[in-house]
Design a binder for these strands. Structure first.
Length: 465
RNA sequence: GGUCCCAUCGUCUAGAGGCCAAGGACAUUGCCCUCUCACGGCAAAAACGCGGGUUCGAAUCCCGCUGGGACUACCA
């Protein structure tokens, strides 16, 4: 049974890179009918916060990455870490080290200055007597020679010389485990079969493998996926704009679009760009993950988002868009009307925010007219055509899309104007803008009376100027 | 500095020695559609980092160089 996990540290929100790692783990587990486990790596008490935990969970939920077990917290598993540290100690595979952080720091700097490697010199490795008055750390007795091999699904076989690796600290002086130790114990306890994570961890992997071996644990399969970079090709960070997954929700992105974008960052399936969840799960494989890092491209995400907005069920769109309209202070009409409004706007807006921003004329008749529009469009000729249309409308009881189109075209013909000229006049009168959804769609939503009112308002406006 | 990873259009990528005078997608440009703006349709421009090998044949294999990235903590 395949078991994967996502193991973020709660030191901030769920970011784009973490989300993709979570997605790959989730997809692989789902593809293989396995389990996906969520674990919170909160051994760094200083930096871990409860808010971050919540932010990460919220992000996962928004992206619809459901987990089967957890969230487990490392902070609640201290006895496990102590137990295995003790075991290593007893078996002579670990030892107490009394060097202080300051001493270590100083030696590192000196070594660097002398052109030597800044690794720990193992001076406490064979210490016979404890040094009193000092709280020791526990270090792992790493092998001195030979090599440690990482057989990685995406990177292939990576060989590390053991002499390059020093005796890492596994338990800090405050009793908390360090990352490289805790992950091993956790992954074993949770029966993780496939460790899928960012390749910034590749260098940690041989150290972890040494611990697996010392404890006689089975070694999982590793897959180190390349990082996501910003436009300047450095690791994606706040500098590059929004990196929090939830920020994309607030900007009006659809979570399926973001997931679709993320899955294609570092993974591909031939030429296919659009994947439903089902397809993604069915087609995902670790073998198709690329080796090289990917640059995050907001333009393509925007394109995908627009695609999802256009393809979505109107009722679903309404459900997701609602909060953005409420945010604007609009009181929402009944469901079918709201859906009609959204469908008229969805071809033009790439995010829910953009859509809500274009929608004002559906919710108020007291809008201002576009400055450029006033100059270009509000003139005698416009007044004439508006009056003519108003006249024709007053003879109609109900206004349907095709009827209105006929009226506009006929008016243009009679006044010897281009249809576009008449349409633009009406557009400015009805929406206050020079750019809007199709006129005929709009009037069907706002109705004949409101249309007439707005035409009158425009004519009045022109009369006053 | 050391260790490790990576290298196809601006970007995401296809490409598993001959199917590649390199395909798709985003972005860009042009044309068409059209009541505006979009959507959509069509088209164009755009890449195998460099140098050596191996081979009848290399984007694909090997080596070097260059360039990028990660790690090098009592962070994860």
């Amino acid at each position: 049974m395949v078991r994967t996990r996502f193991a973020p540290s709660p030191t901030g929100y769920l970011h784009i890179g973490g989300a993709r790692t979570a997605l790959f783990n989730w997809l692989f587990a789902r593809n293989r009918g396995g389990k996906f486990i969520l674990r919170i790596e909160d051994t760094d008490v200083e930096r871990s916060t409860q808010e971050s935990v919540k932010a990460i969970l919220d992000g996962m939920k928004w992206l619809n990455l459901d987990w089967d077990e957890g969230p487990f917290f490392q902070s609640q598993r201290m006895d496990r870490y102590s137990y295995f540290a003790e075991k290593l100690l007893n078996e002579g595979k670990a030892y107490y080290c009394y060097c202080t952080p300051e001493e270590l720091q100083e030696r590192r700097e000196r070594a660097l200055k002398e052109g030597k490697k800044p690794t720990y010199d193992r001076r406490c490795r064979d210490l016979k007597e404890p040094i009193v008055d000092r709280k020791p750390v526990i270090r792992f007795k790493a092998p001195l020679d030979g090599e440690t091999i990482v057989d990685d699904i995406v990177k292939g076989r990576v060989i590390f010389k053991n002499e390059e690796l020093d005796d890492l600290i596994i338990i800090r002086s405050d009793g908390f485990p360090t990352y490289n130790f805790a992950v091993v114990i956790d992954d074993v306890d949770m029966n993780i079969t496939h460790v899928i994570r960012g390749d910034d961890h590749l260098n940690n992997t041989p150290r972890q493998i040494q611990i697996y071996k010392a404890l006689d644990f089975p070694i999982p399969i590793f897959a180190h996926v390349p990082m996501i970079l910003g436009s300047d090709k450095t690791r994606l960070s706040k500098r590059h704009g929004a990196t929090s997954v939830m920020a994309y929700k607030e900007m009006g992105y659809i979570s399926d679009a973001l997931v679709n974008y993320l899955v294609r960052l570092g993974w591909s399936y031939g030429d296919q760009e659009i994947f439903s969840r089902e397809e993604m799960i069915k087609k995902f494989s670790l073998e198709n993950i690329g080796k090289s890092p990917a640059v995050f491209n907001p333009e393509k995400l925007l394109w995908l988002n627009a695609h999802y907005i256009k393809e979505m069920e109107p009722s679903k769109l309404a459900e997701l868009a609602r909060e953005f309209f409420i945010e604007k202070g609009y009181s929402l009409p009944e469901e079918t009307k709201f859906e009609k409004i959204l469908c008229s706007l969805r071809q033009r807006g790439r995010t829910l925010v953009e859509i809500a921003d274009m929608a004002d004329f559906y919710f108020t008749s007291e809008f201002n007219y576009d400055e450029q529009g006033i100059k270009k469009i509000f003139n005698e000729q416009t007044k004439k055509s508006l009056k003519e249309i108003r006249e024709k409308l007053s003879k109609v009881n109900e206004l349907l899309e095709p009827d209105f189109e006929i009226i506009v075209r006929k008016t243009a013909e009679e006044l010897k104007l281009k249809v576009s000229e008449v349409a633009q006049s009406l557009r400015l009168a009805i929406t206050g803008k020079t750019v809007s959804p199709g006129l005929f769609e709009i009037i069907e939503v706002i109705g004949i009376n409101e249309t007439i009112r707005r035409i009158d308002r425009a004519i009045n406006y022109m009369d006053k100027v």
